[in-house]
Every structure is written in C-alpha cells, then in structure tokens.
Simulated scan of single mutants.
Amino acid sequence: MRGKGMIEIVPYSPAHADGVVDVILPIQQSEFGIPITLEGQPDLRNIPGFYQQGRGNFWVALDGGLPVGTIGLLDIGANQAALRKMFVKASHRGGGNGVARHLLETLLEWCRTCDVHDVFLGTTAKFLAAHRFYEKNGFREIARADLPASFPVMAVDSKFYCRAP
C-alpha cells in the first residue's frame, strides 16, 4: 500500500480491464479532446499480450480496489522500452496523492530489475502538466529523430522524452 488513502500499485490483471478503460478514455476524449476510441487502441483490449511481454509490464493504481491510474511499459528491444498509457484520474492527481509518482517509481524499479537501459515516451503537446511531471522526474526532451527505430510513434505524439532508469 502506498500514498494517501491506501493507494496500491499492482500489475495489471484481466479483472482490471473495464476499470483501466474507464480511467483512460475519459481523460483522452473529454479532458483533452483527443478523437480516439477504444477500437483505435488495440493495446487496451489485450494488455497482457501487448505490454506484459519480455521486459514490459502494465500497472494499475487502485484506491479501494478501483483503478484510478495506469502506466504501461512496452519492450521495444535492445534493453529499451516505451512508457505508455500513463493516466491518473483528476481526483487523484497532484503531489498530495502521489499516484503518478508511485506509478513511475514502480515502472523505473521494474526497469532497473529487468536491465532496461533507456525509457522513451511520446506525448501530445496538450499534456502540459505531464511535460512538467516528466521533466521533474528526470526525463529529458529529445527530437523525434533521436528515437530508436523500434519506438512506436502514435499519431498524436509531438513531444518525446528519454530517461535512464
């Protein structure tokens, strides 16, 4: 158990499937106006097959057993990985809750344990608070041209970051 209100960070299991979608889609669609659907994100329909392979994994932040945050790590080969699907419900954001920080710490500890040397991420220009969070937590902005060829760039990605765990 971590954080305020007994937040627990656990590896994804199929029992979390609906709750994960209920965290991610409203943030993408309603908060940020990104025209994306569940059907447009096949990774969300098969988290074990997409993320929980090789050095990858996917974690869920639970508050009272209900998902309030997510973070995914996609193994892209060569001891490198992509951070994906980091979302925290508005009710659980901010330093006082520590949900985002605990999710990221869990992912970085996994990376150290699994010998992942570099973590890359792509984000949209709209996620200004996310940019500050990543920069405060040791990520440095890089040019798209500096991404590994195996990094899966999403259509909405316009800013890119890298960090060694």
Rank of each mutant, 00 (worst) to 15 (best):
I47D: 01
Q80M: 09
V10Y: 05
A81Y: 10
R132A: 12
K126S: 12
G95F: 06
G95S: 14
E105Q: 15
R45P: 01
I27V: 15
V68Q: 04
F151S: 10
R55F: 01
K85S: 01
F133L: 02
V21L: 04
R112K: 12
Q52M: 09
R2P: 02
V99C: 02
P42N: 11
G40R: 13
G3E: 03
G77I: 04
M86W: 05
L74A: 04
A143I: 05
R84K: 14
P35S: 12
R93M: 00
Y134F: 13
N46L: 04
V10E: 09
R2K: 15
Q80P: 02
D157H: 15
M154E: 15
A164Q: 14
A129Y: 10
G122N: 07
A149V: 13
Q28R: 15
A145E: 15
G122M: 02
L44R: 11
N79K: 13
K159T: 10
P11C: 06
K159L: 13
R101W: 10
S30L: 12
D43Y: 06
C111G: 06
D115C: 08
A155P: 07
R101S: 14
A82I: 07
P165W: 11
G49Y: 04
E135W: 07
I34F: 11
P42F: 09
N46M: 06
V20H: 08
N137I: 06
V60S: 02
H131F: 03
V68K: 06
F120D: 05
R140P: 00
D157I: 06
L107H: 07
E105S: 14
P11L: 03
R93Q: 09
F160E: 05
L83Y: 03
